[in-house]
């Protein structure tokens, strides 16, 4: 009875959403979007917001990858808030999964092939993650996927060595240094130009590694922060051994 009711409700939601999305176009040109209104100068631009970003983004930020330009530069404050949410979630998991006397049960050793292979692959995966977040302003990727890749490297170690534990103290040190870097870079921008996260370094030539001002700096900080927080989450969830 309850199941039938739930199915009916789900179908109803499906129909309502589908009716709502009939008029929304798919794959249309961006020139059909509504135009961008600037509330500070009280003017309506002659192009839509994504067009504005795509046209002026390279000059405004110096980054080649526009997604990075939006995440770190145009909406950098938003990203700071999201990283804070991530930090809170990680802290919550750590405090909820805290066990006082960890049960030292005899854990089964894993396969010799798995142990050797994970030892070999660990460095490569960390290197790949670092590559992803260092080149975040040039190629697809950035701090968030790079941090996830680093956390998955630690996950591989957890699977290969059941007794392995990442030191929470060291994780919290790296995480705090990364967070401080983010905030301090923002505050320096506030001191120099009068608004938070101002891009105060020279832009350099586009498509070079040392370009786009503070964007690579902030993205490396985000990568280290996300990597250590996700590793801490995995470690806390792994911690219960009964």
């Amino acid at each position: 009875m309850k199941k039938a009711l739930a199915i009916v409700l789900a179908i109803l939601i499906f129909i309502v959403f589908a009716l709502a999305f009939v008029k929304i176009p798919f794959g249309e040109k961006m020139s059909t979007y509504p135009h961008y209104y600037n509330p500070i100068t009280n003017q309506t631009s002659n192009m839509s917001l994504p067009q504005h970003y795509l046209t002026y983004g390279k000059n405004d930020t110096g980054a080649t990858n526009m997604v990075t330009a939006i995440v770190v530069d145009y909406r950098g404050f938003d990203t700071l808030g999201e990283v804070t949410v991530l930090f809170l979630a990680s802290t919550g998991v750590g405090s909820l999964m805290y066990v006082e006397n960890k049960v030292k049960k005899k854990v089964r050793r894993s396969n010799a092939v798995v142990e050797t292979g994970s030892k070999l692959l660990f460095g490569f995966i960390i290197l790949f993650g670092a590559y992803i977040f260092i080149h975040g302003h040039l190629t697809p990727g950035g701090g968030f996927p790079g941090g996830a890749v680093i956390a998955s490297a630690f996950l591989l170690l957890y699977l290969a060595y059941p007794k392995f534990h990442a030191k929470h103290e060291k994780l919290s040190v790296s995480e705090s240094i990364a967070g401080l870097t983010f905030v301090i870079v923002g505050l320096i921008g506030l001191i120099i130009a009068g608004y938070f996260l101002y891009n105060f370094l020279p832009f350099g030539l586009p498509t070079y590694l040392f370009s786009a001002g503070v964007i690579p700096l902030i993205y490396v900080a985000i990568g280290v922060k996300v990597g250590s927080e996700l590793t801490a989450i995995v470690d806390s969830m792994m911690g219960v051994r009964e």
């Binding site: 990858n65 697809p140 990727g141 950035g142 996927p145 996830a148 996950l155």
Partner: peptide, 12 residues
């Protein structure tokens, strides 16, 4: 960008 993130996070 989103594809890399989803593959690393969603699947692993």
């Amino acid at each position: 960008d989103v594809a890399i993130t989803e593959a690393a996070i969603g699947a692993a």
